[in-house]
Simulated scan of single mutants.
Amino acid sequence: MNDTRTKGDAKLDGDTPTLRLFGLLEVIAEKDQFFTLQGLVDETGLPKPTLHRMLQQLEAAGMLQRDGAGRHYSTGVRLRRLAENLLLNNTAHGARHAVLRQLVEEVGESCNLTAFSGSEVLYLDRVETAAPLRFYLHPGSRVPAHCSATGKLFLAQLSPAQRRRLLAHVPLARYTENTLTDLERLEAEIERVKRAGYALDDEEFLPGLLCVGVLVPAPDGGKSNLGVALQAPIMRLTPDKAVHFLPALQRAAAALAAIEAEAAAGRGDTEETE
């Protein structure tokens, strides 16, 4: 029998309606902007009534939501929470935590692992320093990307058009006198971050707190959704001193990348044996 399915149709293969809904979510998860019913029809080749019914089911379940005049869809709160919980609780957590703990022992300051979630930075894990003066930010905490070191790194991976689309709907709230709330100044800072390969949060989110961060390289060499950062009070850490910690951060990032690559390879081996 000739296989006449389109690329999109193949993604929606499944023996049950539930699996086909999951396949549709996989298609949707690859999108970086709002999408329409007609756009999905064109992409998948499925009948419009079928896709409309599937979208209604996903919207009712909180996996999708409608925006604007109701013609455009985007990911829903429930779907985003699912993705975040997977990041927070995956099987590599113990190994990643050990890398963070070793980094804290080396640099003597609190360190954290973050991911990009919507327009915010999500703290996946954190190890505190034993120093008496420190700032507490527990796993699950969120920080706006525009005033976070790793947040700027995540933003720097987006195309200018993607950044404009994201930031156009996000208020650049001022948290301190140093917070960048002007789009042009933020764009200039993001360009500097792209050239430097690291980013600083110089009292931009909390007064008296300085942070330096780097990205964890993605296993496939593409965009990374993991960052590692060091935080300390300004009485112990200045921007100049923060740069001296970059080699330690980069070694930790490489170790974390190896863990992610091993986990990805393990998932591939499991799929091949099923």
Rank of each mutant, 00 (worst) to 15 (best):
R78Y: 05
R78L: 14
R78Q: 13
R78G: 06
L79K: 11
L79R: 15
R80T: 09
R80E: 14
R81A: 12
L82K: 07
A83N: 08
A83M: 11
A83H: 15
A83F: 13
E84K: 06
N85A: 10
N85T: 12
L86H: 12
L86S: 13
L87D: 13
L87W: 09
L87C: 06
L87E: 14
N89I: 06
N89K: 06
N89Y: 09
N89H: 10
N90K: 03
T91E: 14
T91M: 10
A92M: 04
A92S: 14
A92R: 09
A92W: 02
H93G: 01
G94F: 08
G94Q: 14
A95L: 12
A95F: 05
A95Q: 15
A95N: 07
A95T: 07
A95R: 14
A95H: 07
R96Y: 00
R96C: 11
R96S: 12
R96G: 07
H97D: 14
H97N: 12
H97I: 08
A98M: 06
A98E: 15
V99H: 01
V99R: 02
V99S: 01
V99M: 03
L100A: 02
L100N: 03
R101T: 11
R101A: 15
Q102I: 00
Q102A: 14
Q102Y: 00
Q102S: 11
Q102T: 08
Q102E: 15
L103A: 04
L103I: 03
L103E: 05
E105R: 10
E105Y: 00
E105K: 08
E106H: 07
V107E: 08
V107H: 04
V107K: 06
V107F: 06
G108K: 03
E109Y: 12
E109C: 09
S110A: 11
S110H: 07
C111R: 05
C111Q: 05
C111W: 05
C111E: 01
N112R: 12
N112H: 12
N112V: 06
L113Q: 02
L113T: 01
T114P: 00
T114E: 08
T114L: 01
A115V: 00
F116C: 04
F116G: 07
